[in-house]
Simulated scan of single mutants.
Amino acid sequence: MKGRIFGLTLLTIFSGLSLQAQKTFRIGYVDMEYILQNVPQYQEASSQLDAKVQEWKSEIEEKKREIDEMKSRLNNERALLTRELIEEREEEIAYQEEQALDYQQKRFGPNGDYLIQKKQLVRPIQDQVFTAVREISENRNLDMVFDRTADTGMLYAAEEHDISDQVLRSINRAANRRQVDSRQDRRELETAEERTVEQDNKIAEKAEMNENKQNAREAILAERQRQRDSIKAAKQKELEERRARIIEERQRRMDSIRELRQQKDTIN
């Protein structure tokens, strides 16, 4: 099945690139399973993981034997036990079965320790492979590199064959055409569609530069306004403090005059 998928993938690529006959198209592939089998670090770590797996399996089998013995004892002693004791033993067996199942899922479930450690084991080797594939591909001028043992296949592709931007532009154009109403909008859309990705990138870069300049100007203006507001606030505070001192001084004078009058009236 993997070989068929790999062959169909290559056929699709060759068909899509048939128009580029003037350029030699170079493809390479790697066998990830073969690489992993011949990396000593991976083999050593894999052996350690296999030992853990055997230990986990032994623990699970031991737990199952204990549960089977509990069931056997209950069947043999059932006639001698009260209903309450039978129900208690059955509940204990059900609990132990649930615990055994949870442990099995913890070790070998979709998110279990085995798959997690397997991924952790493979990932460093995969990173080394990807790095080596990129370096070799660039040195040998390879356009694409596949993993023959994987369904997804692609490990490396030269950027010149990346048509993601073109696909995105096509999708956006289709969406924009449905939204166009006036002739003016249609003409503007046609003009935009005639531009290449590089031209669009330059326009986007220019727009970004203009936006950055505008943001910088607005930041400068905001800072100047903040400074003006700060100076204005400081002057306002100084004015209010001066007014408060004047009022306070005036009040003291009035109190002093009132006190002198009271003393004069007392003397008279």
Rank of each mutant, 00 (worst) to 15 (best):
G3V: 09
R4H: 03
I5S: 00
G7Q: 13
L11T: 05
S18P: 13
Q22G: 15
K23R: 11
V30H: 04
V30I: 11
D31H: 11
Q37V: 08
Q41D: 00
E44Y: 06
A45G: 00
S47M: 03
A51F: 02
K52F: 00
E59Q: 12
E59F: 05
E61N: 11
I67D: 08
N75K: 11
E77K: 10
R78E: 09
L80V: 08
E84M: 02
E84I: 05
E88S: 09
E88A: 01
E90V: 04
E92R: 12
A94E: 13
Y95D: 11
Q96E: 15
Q96A: 13
E97L: 11
Q99Y: 03
Q99N: 07
A100H: 04
L101F: 04
Y103S: 05
K106D: 01
K106G: 10
N111P: 04
G112A: 09
Y114A: 03
Y114H: 09
L115C: 05
K119A: 08
V122Y: 03
R123I: 02
Q128N: 06
F130M: 14
R134C: 00
R134G: 04
E135W: 01
R140F: 15
L142T: 03
D143E: 03
V145K: 02
F146N: 05
R148L: 07
D151K: 08
T152A: 10
G153W: 01
G153H: 08
A158T: 01
A158Q: 12
H161N: 06
I163V: 15
S164D: 06
D165Y: 00
Q166M: 03
V167A: 15
L168M: 10
I171N: 07
R173F: 09
A174Y: 06
N176H: 07
V180F: 01
Q184K: 12
Q184P: 07
E188W: 04
L189D: 04
T191V: 09
T191E: 14
A192E: 14
E194C: 14
T196A: 12
E198D: 11
E198R: 13
E205D: 12
A207E: 06
E208H: 14
M209G: 02
Q214P: 00
N215R: 15
A216P: 00
R217N: 02
A222R: 05
A222W: 02
E223M: 04
R224Q: 13
Q225H: 03
Q227I: 07
S230D: 13
A234M: 14
A234H: 10
K235V: 06
Q236E: 14
L239P: 09
E241I: 09
E241C: 06
I247N: 15
Q251R: 11
Q251D: 03
R253K: 11
R253F: 07
M254K: 11
I257D: 10
E259Y: 14
E259P: 02
L260F: 13
R261H: 11
R261D: 06
K264P: 12
D265L: 15
D265T: 12
T266V: 06
N268K: 13
N268Y: 07
N268W: 10
